[in-house]
């Protein structure tokens, strides 16, 4: 089975839907931002929205969305921003970004890792 050629996707439809935008305009959406659908797909939703909403029926990161949809993360983030603005999904922000992780978070990560030992 051949690997898919990078750049072969996104399909034109995706390009049209994002209007050629390669990243979200105003919202900070990261690879690990967790996205959750607020409602099921509705009549008239573009198929791309439906697919995202279906995948996000339980929490899913932008990176996972990209992997399952086989779209680069750029257009995924653009569409997630559109869905956020329409209040169709909610985003659970990632942990520390610019700021240093707090003590409790570090402890929580360590406890979680110890449980995998």
């Amino acid at each position: 089975m051949s690997e898919r050629v990078p750049g072969e996707n996104p399909p034109d439809r995706l390009y049209v839907l994002t209007g050629g935008r390669t990243e979200p305009a105003t919202t900070r959406i990261e690879l690990i931002t967790i996205v959750v659908a607020r409602s099921a797909p509705q009549l008239g939703d573009p198929p791309e929205w439906r697919r995202i909403l279906n995948l996000c029926s339980s929490p899913m990161s932008v990176a996972e969305l990209g992997a399952y949809l086989r779209w680069p993360v750029g257009p995924v983030a653009v569409l997630v921003e559109d869905l956020l603005k329409k209040q169709r999904v909610e985003a659970r922000a990632p942990g520390p970004t610019a700021v240093l992780p707090d003590r409790a978070l570090i402890q929580e990560v360590m406890d979680g890792l110890r449980a995998t030992l």
Partner: peptide, 27 residues
């Protein structure tokens, strides 16, 4: 393989889904 690929396009197996209680992510 192609089966796995198809499955992936449909999304994860239910066992691969995150619990609905997840609210924060780190990397």
């Amino acid at each position: 393989d192609s089966a796995r690929r198809y499955e992936h396009e449909d999304g994860p197996d239910s066992g691969d889904r995150l619990p609905s209680t997840v609210e924060q992510s780190v990397k």
